[in-house]
Design a protein around this nucleic acid. Structure first.
Length: 307
DNA sequence: AGCTGCACCTGGCGGC
DNA sequence: TGCCGCCAGGTGCAGC
């Protein structure tokens, strides 16, 4: 469930089940799920045992669950961090449920109201991973991400920019950054250190909505165009969250294993050869940095060649 | 310093 | 039917 809407659906789904729950046991089935946790599986399991979970937070595509400190009322010092990569899933299952396909890590938790549950991290392609990471102060003293009021962020998430749905997202700073970027706007949208949460689907959808060609040099965009683009990014992401994210197959599901509906709302991504919803011209697909871009060749005019 | 390309994986699908 | 190449929601980093 890779991009912001899918991760947000997972965060919201986990929240009622894990907040205030205690970890009864942690089991690493496949150590490849811990590439972001260098100390390894036994350290991971031991440090989670008996810990109480806080409310899950998210910045861009990174998710974290604060681990309550021993002393009541003290600020959490570390968090369980998750990145779903290309195919990761966080699933809530009844205690003792049979193993999921591609199950990598299982946490057995006890919730004061909901009782015993299993939190399963499953991941076909193993690009996703979990880690226990120290929490550090945010550089701007604002809340670390969506779902938390604490001005804290896991160390390995600190380099990730705020996402466009974050109240702390600085639109003017984003515009100033673009002024100095020679790269194509599509690539800049995918750079998580500039703006986070956007992946290949929502980059194509946002550029289509803003009528901007993906190859346009970022620094060539007018201020007006940058603001229009961010407005469309926000609209696309919010609609996708409301529709439960984009599911093309069984890989992308919420914590209950259910698909999202945003695939029905796509205007560019995956619509190669189908008519543009605005003008009827066939959507084209072009190769782009080992992946692909989908756009309308009529509504999204190629950038003018500059000397 | 900034930018680009590629490596890291598994599995499904279409073509031959 | 079977095999092979291609493609897929992401990130990090080597090397220019």
């Amino acid at each position: 469930m890779p991009e912001l809407p899918e991760v947000e659906v997972v965060r919201a789904g986990l929240a009622p089940a894990v907040t205030d729950a205690v970890i009864e046991s942690a089991t690493v089935i496949d150590g490849r799920a811990l590439t972001r946790h260098p100390p390894g599986a036994s350290d991971f399991e031991a440090r989670l045992l008996g810990r109480t979970l806080g409310g899950p937070a998210r910045r861009g595509k990174f998710l974290w669950i604060p681990l309550a400190p021993g002393a009541p009322g003290a600020v959490p010092a570390e968090a369980l961090v998750a990145h779903l990569g290309m195919s990761g899933q966080m699933l809530l299952r009844p205690s003792g449920a049979p193993p999921e396909r591609h199950e990598r890590v299982r946490l057995d938790i006890r919730h004061p109201e909901h009782g015993d549950l299993a939190v399963v991290f499953a991941d076909q392609r193993t690009f996703g991973s979990l880690a226990i990471d120290p929490l550090q102060d945010t550089a701007d003293a604002r809340a670390g991400g969506y779902g938390t009021d604490d001005a804290l962020v896991p160390a390995q998430v600190a380099h990730i920019a705020r996402d466009p749905l974050d109240p702390g997202f600085d639109l003017r700073a984003f515009r100033r950054t673009l002024e100095h970027k020679a790269s194509a706007i599509k690539r800049v949208l995918l750079d998580q250190t500039v703006v986070s949460g956007i992946g290949n689907i929502y980059a194509d959808e946002s550029l289509w909505a803003a009528r901007i060609h993906p190859d346009t040099r970022a620094s060539d965009l007018s201020t007006r165009a940058v603001y229009r683009l961010i407005a469309e990014v926000r609209a696309v992401l919010e609609k996708a969250v409301a529709e439960g994210g984009t599911s093309f197959d069984a890989q992308y599901v919420n914590v209950n294993g259910q698909a999202g509906y945003f695939a029905h709302s796509l205007n560019a991504y995956g619509r190669t050869g189908q008519p543009c919803a605005r003008c009827g011209a066939p959507i084209v697909k072009v190769s782009f940095t080992n992946r692909s871009s989908h756009f309308c060749p009529h509504c999204q005019r190629p950038p003018r060649l500059t000397a």
